[in-house]
């Protein structure tokens, strides 16, 4: 393995770790599913029949992607692509609600009523995470690792 490949592999691992830590930090959604369902409802983007199902599914999808990034090298690239799509969807949803003038929190890292309302920093944070996913995917490709 060349020095460049080592650097790319390090970048890939580091980016995967940061993205996994971010995804796993949403564990409160699993502890308090009703609060997260309320946060999903408050986006006013889904028909009411899909609010709870989406809230239940996405909280686990995030956690399982985070666990795959940390512990299942075979599924790491797939988890990165899912994380990218999730981040794109969440950013779009936050952007739409910011334009609408919502006063609510995005429910990303806390469901507490005193959590600060969503703002453009939430979108910027997601953009930075998407850049990290891109870095991880490039790092993976150039380090010579394989998805098995």
């Amino acid at each position: 393995m060349t020095a460049d490949q080592k650097i790319y592999r390090f970048a890939y691992w580091l980016a995967c770790f940061i993205i996994a830590a971010t995804l796993l930090s949403g564990y409160h959604k699993i502890l308090y599913p009703a609060d997260f369902a309320l946060a999903v409802y408050r986006f006013h983007l889904l028909p009411e029949e899909l609010v709870n199902i989406s809230a239940i599914y996405f909280q686990w999808l995030e956690i399982i992607c985070g666990l795959c990034l940390l512990f299942v090298p075979k599924l790491r690239v797939a988890a990165l692509w899912i994380a990218l799509v999730l981040l794109l969807v969440f950013s779009g949803a936050i952007g739409i609600n910011l334009v609408r003038g919502t006063a609510f929190s995005c429910g990303c890292f806390s469901n507490a009523p005193d959590a600060p309302p969503m703002d453009w920093m939430s979108v910027a944070r997601n953009a930075a995470l998407m850049a990290l996913v891109g870095l991880a995917l490039i790092g993976f490709k150039r380090s010579g690792e394989t998805a098995h």
Binding site: I30, P33, I56, Y57, Q59, W60, L61, I64, C65, C68, K74, L75, V77, A78, A79, W81, I82, A147, H148
Partner: peptide, 21 residues
């Protein structure tokens, strides 16, 4: 292969979320 793996993660998440809830 990656698409298949994405499918696996989506499926596992579906099963886990159903059981967990």
């Amino acid at each position: 292969t990656i698409l298949k793996q994405i499918g696996i993660i989506l499926l596992i998440s579906g099963v886990v979320s159903f059981l967990a809830n």
